[in-house]
Nucleic acid binder design. Structure first.
Lengths: 263, 263
DNA sequence: CCCAATTTGTTCGTATGTATA
DNA sequence: TTATACATACGAACAAATTGG
């Protein structure tokens, strides 16, 4: 085979061309190959020895580059099998992007920790970005956007209302059918149908009184305190690709801040 | 010197005695030395070559052990200087344990990102642990506890009310003077006066209507939606050492979920 | 200002263990 | 069983930052 095709050798060590350490150059090169689709979601990378040879670095340096990409959830390693490009599974959504959990003191039977929510599409429209949306998506105000309204249920109760905004320019011809027919998570749809990879997200949380829409969708009295989560999902180069405002009914559930590390 | 005194050599590689990899055994040994106070907060560790020799492992293995402890914020490395045991500075509090930030759309002058809050002691009492506190602190209900009520202000506004509960058994003879006289953060007081090291924290967030106390302390109408953050601070071995319920007025501020990585 | 000593950071290479197909 | 891939462990050499003379 020709696994080393189109693979740019990174700079040498002695005269450190780019200023950055060699393992970071190798990392960026790998990142570039994934971003440009040379290794798509779910793809198997060449072996470490092969990659190291192709990139012109030692195995130790290559491993360090891969280490960082694994920490950033862009790659996964499996001993004896190989190294793979991460794809957006339900698992990943649950642990990296879904932060609502049953309250530990809830008067219910304990349903074994994390639960994948049942998602219902409530509304799908096309419109023009308001100030907030435009700023979040780094686009001019008035830019064409799609808005997706989802209701998320846990254990049969409506718990979260998501108002999702994406730029129409990035999601050409997104239709309601896409959303209804998709087999996996929304982010896996972004990836498979539009070539957009969500890597991480920033979230800010505040408390507000439920407005009429939220109250109706979540089935609670208007004015009730609810959580409002503002999320900006980022792709390669920290490019914003989704703005999401979630309204969370926290009578039986919590927003759980992911705890640092856990060795 | 005798830096290698009282330092137990970890098992050999060939016959992997403990089942765990050698670098983890080395890590645990280092962790133990820090926990037992052999290297206190702020202490300088021996050089990597020295530590490696003392522990009977190679420099690469030692570095890997230290790497993990650095990721867990237990150690910090400074090139050319040495490796140090982390101590609880205001900096660390701000970035690892304080998650309230000015809203980006706030109608104010931008005060350069993160701001250290002005803390005012509102109340200090001794009492018996209720159900929640006992469960959180892993103690029998009715156990003696101290309760600390703090008001935190940002830019001159009262934004957070903290109700902190700690076991009296762990904080013997904690007095109001301790709290009023302390020069640094609360966690640095735990560390210097009581030998208790907070390593990480789990937080759960929900929305509630402000009760009378919170309304008074935060200067807002009763019934107003506010954030309620439940935090359990953990020490070595994930032992809970503090239970804290924070009430956050999010009219001008957000609870910011720490974003994963950031290379 | 420069030099030398010390310490961490980077890079290389090799050997061996462990998991998977 | 064999081959392949990642995981662990070792150690050498040099680069870069810091400190003190």
């Amino acid at each position: 085979m020709d696994t080393k095709a189109r693979m740019a050798k990174v700079g040498r060590a002695g005269a450190n061309s780019a200023g950055a350490p060699l393992y970071r150059q190798a990392k960026r090169e790998l990142q570039r190959l994934i971003e440009c689709g040379h290794y798509g979601p779910g793809a198997t990378l060449p072996s470490e020895t092969g990659l190291a040879r192709a990139l012109g670095v030692s195995i130790g340096t290559l491993r360090r580059a891969v280490d960082e990409l694994v920490h950033e959830h862009l790659l996964v390693r499996r001993q004896g099998r190989g190294t793979y490009v991460t794809s957006h599974t339900a698992e990943r959504f649950l642990f990296q992007f879904f932060h609502v959990e049953l309250r530990p003191d809830a008067p219910l039977d304990a349903p074994g920790e994390r639960e994948y929510p049942q998602v219902t599409l409530v509304d799908f429209t096309r419109g023009k970005a308001d100030e907030m949306e435009a700023a979040a998506l780094d686009r001019p105000a008035g830019d064409a956007v799609f808005r997706i309204d989802n209701r998320l249920s846990l254990a049969g109760r409506a718990v979260v209302h998501d108002r999702i905004t994406v730029a129409a320019a990035l999601f050409k011809n997104l239709t309601e059918q896409h959303l209804r027919a998709r087999p996996g998570t929304l982010y896996s749809l972004y990836q498979s149908e539009f070539g957009i990879t969500v890597l991480r997200a920033r979230e800010r949380v505040r408390a507000i009184a439920a407005d009429t829409d939220a109250a109706r969708i979540l089935g609670l009295p208007r004015g009730q305190p609810v959580l409002q989560v503002h999320r900006i999902a980022l792709s390669f180069g920290d490019k914003p690709v989704e703005y999401r405002v979630s309204t969370v009914h926290t009578a039986m559930h919590d927003y759980v801040s992911l705890l640092p590390q856990g060795r």
